[in-house]
């Protein structure tokens, strides 16, 4: 009943849960508190404990889902053919790179700011999940295409919302940093211009036969503008409304408009 995919998750779950308890006790919690998930007494360091506990529960859920869903699904024919065929080469994967980035973030976070630490942990968690599922699905059947389908079926429900939320978060955080770095009036103008630019560019693209690459170029320039502006804005900090220091503000504004205007002409 338990194929090795679900075993993997269950083992991960048990390890994480045990780790949570050990970590909880090690960081000053008491045994009852640790076992009762913090209901009775302390669990030591809340963050680490909750993280490990959450990871354990999540992988238990994944393992359960596997048992319920995925393993009932393996085609016996393909199952046997696993032994016969050589596992196909994997698609180029960026997860390793991203994982390294996560580790770097974490290291950075330990010395600079806890925000980086959390970011690093989140990135590593995502990479680990993706990698696990990828590694497991690569061996699921002998057929690379169906392996990819299996992978997508398992990870689609994770990736689609996560992608959506990351996209929103990036856009919202970036744009709001820009707005915050400038004066009230400038913020109003920038927001209006930016929205109008998106709107009229879309109208123009819809009416014209702008090629794919032009559209892609426009979209990437906009994205870079938002992210770059956001980083610049974050570095510049929030605008001090009672001081007469509009230097950073006007600089930002120029940066924004200089990237935007050529694009609209290009279209």
């Amino acid at each position: 009943m338990f194929a090795w995919g679900s075993k993997y998750f269950f083992a991960l779950s048990i390890t994480a849960l045990l780790g949570a308890m050990i970590y909880g006790i090690a960081s000053g919690g008491d045994i009852v508190g640790v076992i009762s998930s913090g209901y009775k007494g302390g669990v030591g360091d809340h963050f680490g404990y909750a993280l490990l506990l959450g990871a354990g529960l999540l992988s238990a859920c994944l393992g359960l889902l596997n048992v319920l869903v995925r393993e009932a699904d393996i085609d016996p024919d393909n199952e046997t053919s696993t032994a016969l065929t050589i596992a196909p080469p994997r698609d180029p994967s960026f997860w390793g790179v991203l994982g390294a980035f996560g580790v770097a973030c974490m290291a950075l976070g330990l010395s600079i700011s806890s925000a980086f630490l959390y970011l690093g942990i989140a990135v590593i968690a995502v990479v680990a999940l993706e990698w696990l599922v990828l590694a497991w699905s690569d061996r699921a059947t002998g057929d690379a295409d169906s392996n990819r389908i299996i992978r997508n079926r398992l990870l689609g429900p994770f990736e689609v919302p996560m992608f959506s939320m990351l996209a929103i978060a990036a856009g919202v955080v970036g744009a709001s940093r820009v707005l915050l770095a400038v004066s009230h009036t400038a913020a109003t103008v920038i927001a209006s211009l930016f929205a109008a630019l998106i709107f009229f560019a879309a109208v123009f693209i819809a009416k014209s036969n702008a090629s794919r690459s032009v559209v892609a170029g426009f979209v990437s320039i906009m994205a870079i503008a938002v992210l770059g502006g956001g980083i610049a804005g974050a570095v510049a900090g929030e605008y001090e409304h009672h001081e007469e220091d509009g230097h950073a503000e006007s600089g930002d504004k120029e940066a924004e408009s200089s990237t935007e205007e050529p694009v609209s002409e290009e279209n």
Partner: peptide, 18 residues
């Protein structure tokens, strides 16, 4: 109890909706 529990809960909610 602890807002940290909301994270796995919300994740599970989103995943199950999708």
């Amino acid at each position: 109890y602890s807002l940290w529990f909301c994270i796995p809960g919300t994740l599970l909610t989103i995943i199950s909706i999708y």
